[in-house]
Amino acid sequence: MHWYEKLNEYFPVQEMKSKEHMEALLKDRNDIYHKDEGPKHVLMYVETDTFTFIDYLFVSKDARGEGLGHKLIQKLKDKNKPIILEVEPVDYEDTDTEKRLRFYKREGFEHATSIGYKRRSLATKEINPMEILYWSPGHESEELIFNAMKKTYEMIHTYKDNKFYGEKYEPVDNVLKLDDKNDRNVLDGL
């Protein structure tokens, strides 16, 4: 199965970039946008001088429990820079959301509780709240994570959006907010 089909079957439609968008990133932004693919996994990520952003991580069901996800995350941790990713809030009807959060908690990720993130899907037109998780070797501030997320949104998520989707995503300042009042941690109690 093609790498895009694996991702498309696993991730919700509102979180998926189009195949054309991702192929353009791999071609045009190959200085920062990368694909690590094997028979049992697909990892799409952004690597800059100061941080790594995991765009998509897929490990096939038959490989779960083999430590493959841990090995992929460790490979990124070995670069010794903050790692950032987006996750959907826990949906108790979808057990995979809780499993994902447990996995990232085991891997030492923290929830950026001060960052609010709500993006309108161009596929469904719905507003989707997402949570930002991060791992930081130097205990960087959530403000640094926030600025890296803004950079990712502008460089990757909205890359040629009008060309690929026929419309533009909302401006970054409408989507990402730094709000110190949020004290709900999605990793608590897992």
Rank of each mutant, 00 (worst) to 15 (best):
P12K: 04
V42A: 00
K19M: 14
F109T: 01
A24L: 03
A123R: 12
E110V: 07
L101R: 05
H41P: 03
N30D: 14
H139Q: 14
V42C: 10
A123P: 00
Y134V: 00
R184C: 06
Y33W: 04
K6C: 12
H157A: 07
V87H: 07
P82I: 13
D28E: 15
N182R: 14
Y117Q: 03
G138K: 14
E66I: 05
D62K: 12
D94W: 04
N147E: 13
E170D: 15
R64H: 07
H2A: 12
V46C: 08
K40A: 11
Y45Q: 10
Y169G: 09
L187G: 01
G166A: 06
M149E: 11
V59M: 13
Y10D: 12
K35M: 09
S121L: 02
I54T: 00
P39F: 12
D188H: 13
M149S: 14
M1N: 12
T48D: 07
E131Q: 13
L178F: 15
V175I: 03
G138E: 15
D173A: 05
L187E: 08
T158F: 02
G189N: 13
A63K: 04
G38R: 08
L133H: 00
R29F: 03
D188I: 02
V46H: 03
A63E: 01
M155Q: 12
E131V: 05
D96V: 13
K151S: 12
I83P: 01
I115P: 00
H21Q: 12
K75R: 11
L176F: 04
E20V: 08
K118C: 12
W135Y: 14
D179G: 02
L57W: 12
G67I: 07
F164Q: 02
N8C: 09
G108R: 01
N8W: 10
K151A: 11
N185M: 03
E37Y: 02
G116C: 05
M1F: 11
I73G: 00
E9F: 14
K75D: 08
E15C: 09
E9P: 09
V175K: 09
D36M: 04
E170R: 15
R120E: 15
K181N: 15
G189R: 07
E15H: 09
H21P: 04
S136E: 00
V87A: 10
S114P: 01
D179Y: 04
Y45W: 07
G116K: 08
R29S: 10
G38V: 06
Y56M: 02
L72P: 02
W3E: 02
L43N: 01
K125F: 03
D91V: 02
T52D: 08
Y92A: 03
R184K: 14
L7G: 04
W3R: 04
D96L: 15
E126G: 05
Y56S: 05
